Amino acid sequence: MERRNGGGGGFCSFPLLFAVAASFVVAVLARVLYVLYHTGRPLRSKKGVRPLRTLIILGSGGHTAEMLNLLAVLDKDKFNPRFYISAITDSMSLQKAEVYEESIAPQNTGTGDEMNPAHFMKIYRSREVGQSYITSVGTTIVAIIHALWLTFKIRPQVVICNGPGTCIPLCVCSFLLKVVGIRWSSIFYVESIARVKKLSLSGFLLYHLRMADQLFVQWPYLKTKHPRALYVGRLM
């Protein structure tokens, strides 16, 4: 009789475990839906206007040039400190960002991290140009782990990116930080001026997964195809 009771207890524990697991899944889904619902909506801060920790994701070549042009009109005191990240194989973008920060050094009058408003970091790429999709599975996993560590370390309140594949792991991890309640951030994606009729893969993913709080396009045709995007005209 004791063995049957023990077996029955084990059997009865399965519905309990299932209920706990189901409750956890429902809670996670509810939290994700909550974050998606509030993504893109203005947030009211009870602490007043304070500098925002800003993550700036650099591509290479034209992406970096476009990003630096965009940053030229950025309120440096409001978006401070600034964390620049580029792919580990990109040897030029961070150098250009450092030169840019040196050129505006006299303008750095903000509070908080005012003595060191700019930080420069590198990240592993998910996929290099020409790399096979099979081998990119492993590099993508490494990139996501690295991106998770970087975003947890930076805990950005604002993420600005404009197209490089490097931005996807960082945006996904920033979104996850919102889901788990560690840091709420706003993701702003500016599609490259070279994209006239079709979004880049990064833009396509961030738009359809609804991770970007605002997605800007520079050509009216893209706005007609993607109604939630914001048409801002040519930025260069």
Score class of each variant (00 low, 15 high):
Gly6Gln: 13
Gly8Thr: 03
Gly8Met: 12
Gly8Arg: 09
Gly9Asn: 04
Pro15Gln: 02
Pro15Ile: 07
Val25Arg: 01
Val26Asn: 02
Val26Glu: 08
Ala27Met: 03
Val32Ser: 00
Tyr34Gln: 15
Val35Asp: 10
Val35Gln: 09
Lys46Pro: 08
Lys47Asn: 14
Val49Asn: 14
Ile57Asn: 04
Ile57Lys: 02
Leu58Trp: 01
Gly61Glu: 08
Ala65Tyr: 03
Leu70Gln: 08
Leu71Gly: 03
Val73Leu: 03
Leu74His: 00
Lys76Ser: 00
Arg82Glu: 07
Tyr84Phe: 15
Ile85Asn: 04
Ile88Cys: 07
Ile88Ser: 14
Ser91Ala: 12
Met92Thr: 13
Ser93Gly: 09
Glu98Asp: 10
Val99Ser: 14
Ser103Arg: 10
Asn116Lys: 15
His119Trp: 08
Lys122Leu: 00
Tyr124Ile: 10
Gly130Phe: 13
Val137Thr: 10
Thr139Gln: 04
Ala143His: 09
His146Lys: 14
Trp149Pro: 01
Leu150Asp: 00
Leu150Ala: 11
Gln157Arg: 15
Val159Trp: 11
Val159Glu: 08
Cys161Thr: 15
Asn162Val: 03
Cys167Ser: 15
Pro169Thr: 13
Leu170Val: 12
Val172Leu: 14
Ser174Leu: 08
Phe175Pro: 04
Leu177Trp: 13
Val179Leu: 14
Ile182Lys: 13
Arg183Glu: 12
Ser192Met: 04
Val196Pro: 05
Lys197His: 09
Lys198Ile: 00
Leu199Glu: 02
Ser202Asp: 07
Gly203Leu: 06
Leu205Glu: 05
Tyr207Thr: 02
Phe216Arg: 02
Val217Asp: 00
Gln218Cys: 10
Pro220His: 11
Tyr221His: 02
Thr224Asn: 13
Thr224Cys: 11
Thr224Ile: 10
Thr224Glu: 15
Lys225Asn: 07
Pro227Asp: 00
Ala229Ser: 15
Val232Lys: 07
Gly233Thr: 10
Met236Gly: 05
